[in-house]
Write a protein that binds this DNA or RNA. Structure first.
Lengths: 228, 228
DNA sequence: GGGACTTTGTTCCTGCGTTCACAAGCGGTT
DNA sequence: AACCGCTTGTGAACGCAGGAACAAAGTCCC
């Protein structure tokens, strides 16, 4: 009954999506939304959306719907977005530069306070308004800024040492883009985003769909010629 | 039981991880691996790993373990990696350029056959060995190359139109990096990768952990000055 | 050749997430 | 003021994923 006994992780991920949709609706001047419309825009089931929202207490009006601005602020508060989160980014390659320049982070309360790279050629360059610093200064910057989130976009070979240094420096949440499974000490949360894994799942689903005609397309799809 | 009655998506995602670990072990010259060691390297439970592998039939030797090369090839076959997949990439901004230059795709059977961007300044440039083409040629290239996978790395505003054009051109699997929920016709599978959502989940877990001291750290954690 | 150890493959069980369906409550209307 | 339709919030059932324990099977050693 308290504020948050426990919110499932799957629900948290969806809350972030709702928040994005609600921000767009607020910009369009919408005052209220129904669960059905919001669920449709987010690509989920209306009942599931209501259950997700029930985790943060009653925040809608029966017979009317949800007040867009109020619900947006409520979700932002629950997700911990009222306070800015300081992040450090290690590995300013192609992907790292893309992350540093991505505006979607800053508008959601995440601020990069340090960019690091091992290559001397990169050090000193400015990416997204911040200078790239040598990795030797990592611990110093983390301690000075109180950064709690670390993002790893390095080659796979050095991802684990970087993870160890981040954890030792006091970072408690790590987002890893390197294609390796990281091990972190107890109390440090690591989330893995493997781009090739996503592609392989897509390829498998495509193969499975093509091999099993049990899920036919309702589109004509022409000859196809496929046979079992 | 024979070929594939149905493999859960969660298992497919983990199979891709096992495949990466097995490739590394094969490069190190390892002949066999036990489920415990493989599970440890992949960061999963040994029992769960064996259950995942059971979906593709008995492929291990009791008392010994799994033959590294054999298991690797088996997983690669199941995931549909023996045949190369042609992909098109729309939106050559910071993120798109990073994806085009990422070597992890080519080594896993995914080949970019077309890069597209709406900006005339981008068109003609070469990224990752391929020329950037105008989006007007999208349908033509998809038809000529038979690409089945489309990757969207455009701004959010144009992601839905691009998705529609990809689907109409014959692409059946779409990986979307734009922060919008896409709607695709029946038969076209869309996977969403929202980087800010990942960060927000991390921030929430951190906030929850900090507010609820029920999960204490077993490390001393007192002075931040300590290091490995 | 036999015994014992190791490791896989399977089965059961617990818990979670998702979905469906209904009661409660609010606004608008007459 | 009362009725009625609409929407939220909640309770229950279904299905699925995850984890642990057990039996089968193969190998190594004596």
């Amino acid at each position: 009954m308290q504020s948050r006994p426990r919110i499932p992780e799957a629900t948290v991920a969806r809350l972030a999506v709702y928040l994005r949709v609600l921000s767009g609706l607020a910009d369009d001047g919408r005052g209220t939304v129904s669960s059905g419309e919001l669920a449709s825009a987010a690509g989920v089931n209306p009942a599931g959306l209501r259950k997700d929202l029930s985790h943060l207490g009653p925040c809608g009006t029966r017979g009317v719907g949800y007040e867009v601005a109020t619900l947006r602020d409520r979700i932002a508060t629950v997700l911990g977005m009222e306070t800015a989160h300081a992040c450090v980014l290690v590995g300013i390659g192609n992907l790292g530069a893309a992350l540093a320049g991505y505006g979607g982070f800053g508008s959601r309360g995440f601020e990069f306070v340090g960019l690091f790279d091992a290559s001397p050629a990169r050090v000193g360059q400015h990416v997204g308004g911040l200078p790239v610093r040598p990795v030797a200064e990592l611990e110093e910057v983390v301690a000075a800024t109180g950064a709690t989130i670390g993002v790893i976009a390095t080659p796979a070979e050095v991802a684990q040492p970087v993870c160890d240094r981040l954890a030792a420096a006091g970072v408690r949440s790590i987002l890893n883009f390197a294609p390796v499974t990281l091990t972190a000490p107890r109390g440090v949360d690591v989330r893995q985003v493997d781009l090739s894994v996503e592609l392989q799942v897509l390829a498998f689903l495509d193969k499975q769909r093509g091999a099993v005609p049990g899920v036919p397309l309702d589109t004509p799809l022409a000859p196809a010629g496929g046979m079992a």
